[in-house]
Every structure is written in structure tokens, then in C-alpha cells.
Design a protein around this nucleic acid. Structure first.
Lengths: 216, 216
DNA sequence: TAGATTGTTAATCGATTAACAATC
DNA sequence: TAGATTGTTAATCGATTAACAATC
């Protein structure tokens, strides 16, 4: 409402209610801007950025409008400024600690994947119901008992869940109990959890099945 | 329009225009039904199935209505019949051959993941721009040159793309040229391809970033 | 000033949900 | 028949897009 609410108020406002789909696309824009920064581009129009991100210019402008007025009419957006603002909104300032639960096939695969670190996330520990699993990478696999202490000591908020469908719900409930607030769920069941816990589902089998439908 | 259009016409109708989001949820329902079949449940109501799948009953009924009339009023849906019908619609009759392109960190992880086979997909070959990569599992990693022949010989329609962002667009174009019709894209860029090619994006970094936003 | 592009409003579109007649 | 639950219509909701005034 006010023209220039100042930094503190701005931060409060922002963290309130950006639509979920918009937040998702902000991440997308952030990656596109990363490319442009690397290419030393200083200004970008909504049309150009939208094209790279695969969305409509009007949608991009509307999404960015949630972040406050960032562009200059007649000119466009300053690439570095916009990038910094999106990083700030998405909370990418610091390295986020994450735990991984379920060191089966997919869990091991994700543990060995170094892409998370590159994007600001660090898997600080791995847990399994049957922790006798062989060491994976540089990281030991622990039993569930030691989870609570670690999560609280290191103030961990996020977990990657890769247990089989049969134990997913109960393990997810344990995660909530120890204070996890967001779960990236790779197990093939729909979790029923309190609304205060954010869940994103990644179901590789469904993605493939879905594609196979559209490939005739 | 007609009450009972007969099997052939029904099949044609069905493969036409089920909304994309509905197709996605059909896969979800199929998995829930799998659990119920395993538990020897014979009948399920829209309310019960919807609850397991995490959707509203009305939405479930609407989704299923795209598949023809399948339920019995006053009773519910016959579990096995419904499961079979969804498998038929989603084309899960036969094992689908898939290629994987880009055997870096994530590509190797996915190659070692055995979950695809369990769901009816077989990764029949792996390709890389620099195929000197060490053998992975039971499968050799080939150079891109041999891709066209294999894809056409085995009539492969689907590819999993795990190359770095910098080469993703050009590799995706090569995939289209050799006849791939659907791509599961793990590389962190938005692909610009002909509309005839279906693309599903899985961006693990964005999923985590998105969660971290909602975990405050 | 003239040209360009944003920020925002209003219109459109599609998807979800509530409600209920049909019917098992 | 009475009770239950589907299939479907109509209402609602939210998200996308077109259009344009504001303004750099």
C-alpha cells in the first residue's frame, strides 16, 4: 500500500502470501537469471526472460510484481538486482542443512548426487530403519533413534524421504515429531500430515507413466 | 453422447482428450488401487479412494468419469476392474523401453535405481557425450552416434535426460531428431521443443528450494 | 518528445467443488 | 422400498492472459 515501506516491513510482507505456483516459478526465473549473470547481461525485458523460462511475459510480470516493483518502465529489469532480490525472497542466503531418510536404492542414488550442494543444500546425515547398510560416500548411515537429537541440535527443518511406500506414512510422522517442517517425498504414497508441514512429492514412476501416455 | 458406444469407439474416445492433470491423478489412483488389491479389498467408494489419494471425492469421480462409467451407484467401484481399466488407459500393458542420456552424477544415480523396472519401464541403453565413462551396472555407456540406430530398431519413444544445463537444449533436439516423443527432463533448463514432443520436468534443486521457502 | 516496457486491471480460461438427480 | 453412492450439472474458485495507462 505505502510506497516505500522500508526493509523490515518489506521482508514481513513478502514472506506472507505469494501463491505457491508463483514461488515455484520464481525459482525458475532465478536459474535463468543465473545464466544471464554468467553471460554478463545487465538488463533483461520481461519478454526475453519469459521466453527463456518458457512462460508468458504477462505471467512473468505478474509473478515479479509480488516481489515489489523491480523493473524500470521503458527499459526492463536489471539482471543482478533482480537475481539478488529473488535469492533474498527464496531464502537462498545461507546453506540449508537437510537430512535424508531411507537409504535404499533411490536414497543411495540421491546421496551420491552432488547437485544439491551446488544449489545451497547440504545433506548432513542419512538415516535408515535398518542402519546396517553399508557406508555410503563419506557419510555413515544412522538408526532412527539418533535423529531427534541431531535435528534439534542443528535446527534442521527439511528432510528428503526415500523409504518404501509401506513405511512412508509412519516415518513421515516421526519426522514431524522431531520437528521437521518440510519434506521432499520420493516414496510412492500420499502422505497425510498436519497442514503446517510442507510436502513436495516427486514420483519418478508416475512421471514416466504420465509421459508414456502422451507418447501414445 | 450415445449411451453405449461399444468397445472400439470407447477406446478411441478415451485416448483423445483427458486433461493432463487428470491423467496424472489417474496414475495416483492406480497406485492406491494396487495397495487395495494387495489387501484383498473388492469394493471401494469414491470417498475412501479419494481419502487415500489425498483428493476430494467429487474430483475423483469426475476424473474417473473420463474413463467411462465404471462405478455402481449405491455401491462404489470394483477394485480389480477399476485397476485394470486404469492400466489399460495409461498403457501399462507392456514393458516400455527407455533410454537414458547423460551419465553424470544424477544419471548414474538413476541408472542404479531399480524402481523403474518395478513400474514397467526398462532402461535399455545409456548414452553420454563423453562415453569413456566407466561402465555402470550391467550396462555399457555409448556415444551419441549409436543412438539413432538403436532408437529406431527398438522403436523407443521415451528418454530420460540428465545432461548438464549447458548441453540440454542441443541434446534434446538430437533426441527429437532420432524420433523420441517424450522426455523426462532432469536438467535444470527449460527445453524449447516442438509441441508434438511431451516433456515432464523434474528439478530437484527447485523442489528443495521451494520447500525451504515454505519451511520459513 | 517518441518509443518502449513495466505494473495492474479487467476479461478469460480452466480446474475444482458442491449439490443433486439418477439409479443400484 | 429405503439407503447409499455414482455421474453430472451448475457454481465457485483461482490462475492465466490480454490490454493499456503509467512512466521511464
Amino acid at each position: 500500500m505505502t510506497k516505500n515501506p522500508g526493509n523490515v516491513e518489506k521482508l514481513i510482507r513478502v514472506s506472507s502470501d505469494i501463491p505457491r505456483k508463483t514461488v515455484y516459478r520464481l525459482s525458475l526465473y532465478l536459474r535463468c537469471l543465473g545464466l544471464m549473470v554468467a553471460r554478463r547481461e545487465s538488463i533483461v525485458s520481461s519478454a526475453a526472460l519469459a521466453s527463456v523460462a518458457g512462460v508468458q511475459p504477462a505471467q512473468l510480470r505478474r509473478d515479479l510484481a509480488y516481489c515489489g516493483p523491480l523493473g524500470k518502465r521503458g527499459t526492463g529489469y536489471e539482471v543482478v538486482t533482480l537475481r539478488n532480490r529473488l535469492e533474498e525472497i527464496l531464502g537462498r542466503a545461507s546453506l540449508q542443512p537437510v537430512i535424508l531418510v531411507g537409504v535404499g536404492n533411490l536414497g543411495q542414488a540421491l546421496l551420491s548426487y552432488k547437485g544439491f550442494a551446488r544449489e545451497g543444500f547440504e545433506i548432513v546425515a542419512a538415516f535408515d530403519l535398518k542402519p546396517q547398510k553399508q557406508m555410503e560416500g563419506r557419510m555413515g548411515v544412522r538408526g532412527m533413534g539418533s535423529m531427534k537429537g541431531l535435528v534439534q541440535r542443528r535446527e534442521i527443518r527439511m528432510a528428503i524421504l526415500c523409504v518404501p511406500g509401506s513405511s512412508a506414512q509412519s516415518v513421515a510422522e516421526q519426522l514431524c515429531e522431531v520437528g521437521i517442517q518440510a519434506i521432499l517425498n520420493f516414496s510412492p504414497v500420499v502422505l497425510h500430515l498436519p497442514e503446517t508441514v510442507a510436502v513436495n512429492n516427486v514420483n519418478l514412476a508416475i512421471e514416466l507413466e504420465n509421459l508414456s501416455y502422451f507418447a501414445r
